[in-house]
């Protein structure tokens, strides 16, 4: 394990220890640990695909828009098509992510602008489809969420899903040709292109994975809220990017990965949750969040491999 990951891991450990010692009753309560895991699972699942996009040096600003849209789509699909809703939502996520990738590679629009544009489209579609109101789940559809809501002690199905996805994406990153191409493009797109790699196809697939993981995160969100909310995504957007970056994945590409994102997610959720648990004045919370975020990046980002920090 390299230095960056080790540091990120120690940040997680220190945060956890501080919280556990300062207010053991509140922080270590079964309810709080459950909440913590709920949030961490959602953030992590949403951020896991984005990690690949950031690894190639691009960005996906439409994750928030997709979250809004897919919670609505998933609930509607559950109400009308039952179990097929899972396939519909995940498939749609993959396709819309691919659309992002096509806008980026074929129209040659920088991903920052391209996904900023599609983000608006997705957010609007969410409002149009839902009529601007949260959509409730029919009671008879509730049982369809069992795979995500069943409980084993404090662990829920959705937490297990996050864990399984971590394993799968970790393998994708480290042991598939696609994962190798992602790292190569992130370090040097020219050299990768000249090695005969289909660079555009790889990039499109990264965005498709980001869409897919947004869809999965939406499904987890619905399993918690039991409704689809067309405005839920917006506050998630920056949190999800922060989870990736705080873990030590460089916005310039090449450096980082899904393990970093796992640690980044834990840092973000521990900080967010911890400030409430310890009882810090709401007015001061954002100061502390900001500072901890910066310190975490100082510790986790391996700058030896990055020429320019942008």
């Amino acid at each position: 394990m390299d230095k960056g990951k080790l540091l990120a891991l120690s940040v997680v450990a220190v945060l956890f220890a501080v919280l556990a010692f300062s207010s053991p009753q509140a922080f270590l309560s079964r309810y709080n640990i459950g909440t913590l895991l709920d949030y961490a699972a959602t953030y992590f699942i949403a951020a896991i695909g984005l990690t690949f996009v950031i690894m190639i040096g691009s960005i996906d600003l439409s994750v928030g828009g997709m979250l809004s849209l897919f919670t609505v789509v998933f609930v509607l699909a559950l109400n009308y098509f039952g179990f097929w809703a899972y396939f519909i939502t995940i498939g749609l996520g993959f396709l819309l992510g691919m659309a992002n990738g096509l806008v980026f590679t074929k129209l040659k629009i920088p991903s920052f602008i391209g996904t900023f544009g599609t983000s608006g489209v997705f957010a609007s579609l969410a409002l149009i489809v839902s009529g601007g109101r949260p959509i409730g789940l029919r009671p008879q559809a509730l049982s369809l969420l069992n795979p995500l809501t069943f409980e084993l002690g404090p662990i829920k199905g959705s937490h297990l899903l996050a864990f399984v996805l971590f394993g799968i994406f970790f393998l994708i990153q480290n042991s598939t040709p696609f994962g190798k191409y992602v790292a190569a493009i992130g370090h040097s797109e020219r050299a990768t292109l000249l090695s005969g790699i289909k660079v555009d196809r790889t990039k499109i697939f990264c965005f498709a994975l980001s869409g897919l993981s947004a869809a999965l995160a939406s499904i987890v969100l619905v399993s918690r809220m039991l409704s689809g909310d067309p405005t839920i995504g917006t506050p998630y957007q920056l949190q999800v990017i922060a989870a990736v970056v705080v873990g030590g994945t460089a916005l310039t590409g090449g450096v980082g990965g899904v393990f970093n994102t796992l640690l980044g997610t834990l840092i973000i959720t521990l900080v967010g949750n911890g400030l409430y648990v310890v009882g810090i004045d709401v007015y001061y919370q954002m100061i502390i969040t900001g500072i901890i975020t910066m310190v975490a990046v100082i510790l986790t980002l391996d700058r030896t491999k990055i020429k320019v920090v942008k």
Partner: peptide, 13 residues
């Protein structure tokens, strides 16, 4: 250094 190989990846990659 920029187009021939990927400096920050190992030889085998």
């Amino acid at each position: 250094r920029n187009e021939g190989l990927i400096l920050h990846l190992p030889i085998f990659e």
